[in-house]
Amino acid sequence: MPGLTGDPNQHDASKFSDSISGSCLCGSITVTITDPELFSKPRGHLCHCSNCRKVAGSFVSSNLLIEAEKVKIDDRDGTLTTYEDRATGSGNPVYRFFCSKDGNPIKSETQAYPGKVVVKMGMMPRIPQPEMESFGLHKHAWQGKHKDMQTYKIRFAGPDKELLE
């Protein structure tokens, strides 16, 4: 069908050997990740926590925790807005950035990962194969297991880092 977008098979991963860019729905915000290892190995994680599910509008969120200096955000129309999410398990806020025009999630920041950002990968033309899942205890019973992917009960870092059987 003409006009359909989003088919990752139309975007060979070799085109993204140095960087990848994606945008929000209205095109106001463009995010560029510069990392030559983005597609050379599994990267990022699928998060099943309720807050990430709400932000993604889905049963899971595809995230990439990466050094802030590897991420460039162009906010052409000044629509980048922040929501301070305090409904977290740790009680520490997660700052969730989104486009105020179309609601597209862009990134999250938390003091748990200083110097890093969590890029919401759904806006990218292609997503690297995730290396892990977090909040596996929060998965729906109908969800399957991803082959060769570690699933953590809650978080993949910190004191509650524990794999799900």
Rank of each mutant, 00 (worst) to 15 (best):
C24R: 08
L25A: 08
L25M: 14
C26D: 11
G27C: 14
G27T: 10
G27V: 06
I33D: 14
T34S: 13
T34I: 13
T34F: 01
D35W: 13
P36V: 09
P36N: 15
E37K: 13
F39M: 07
F39Q: 14
S40C: 06
K41D: 00
R43Q: 15
G44N: 06
C47L: 02
C47W: 02
C47T: 01
H48L: 06
H48M: 05
C49S: 12
C49P: 14
C52W: 01
C52P: 12
C52V: 11
V55P: 02
V55G: 04
A56S: 07
G57F: 02
G57S: 12
G57C: 15
F59K: 12
F59V: 14
V60T: 02
V60Y: 06
V60N: 00
S61I: 13
S62C: 04
S62V: 03
S62Q: 09
N63C: 14
L65F: 04
L65G: 10
E67A: 12
K70I: 10
K70G: 11
D74T: 07
G78S: 11
T79S: 13
T79Y: 12
L80W: 07
T81H: 12
T81K: 13
T82D: 05
T82S: 09
E84I: 10
E84D: 13
E84Q: 14
D85G: 04
D85L: 08
D85Q: 15
A87G: 09
T88A: 03
T88E: 04
G89A: 02
S90P: 09
G91P: 12
G91F: 09
P93H: 10
P93I: 09
Y95H: 01
R96G: 13
F97Y: 15
F98D: 14
C99S: 14
C99Q: 05
S100D: 15
K101M: 11
D102N: 02
D102G: 12
G103C: 14
N104K: 00
P105T: 11
I106Y: 11
I106H: 09
I106D: 07
K107P: 06
K107M: 11
S108A: 14
E109F: 07
E109D: 03
Q111C: 04
Q111M: 15
A112C: 06
Y113L: 13
Y113I: 01
P114V: 12
P114W: 02
G115E: 03
G115P: 06
V117S: 08
V119L: 07
V119R: 04
K120F: 04
K120E: 07
M121W: 06
G122M: 03
M123C: 15
M123L: 12
M124Q: 02
P125Y: 12
P125C: 09
R126G: 12
I127F: 11
Q129K: 04
Q129Y: 07
P130M: 02
P130V: 05
E131F: 09
M132G: 03
M132K: 01
M132Q: 03
M132T: 02
E133R: 04
S134G: 05
S134M: 02
S134P: 02
F135G: 07
G136Q: 03
H138F: 00
H138R: 04
K139S: 05
K139T: 07
H140V: 05
H140W: 06
H140T: 05
A141G: 03
W142D: 15
W142M: 12
Q143T: 08
K145M: 07
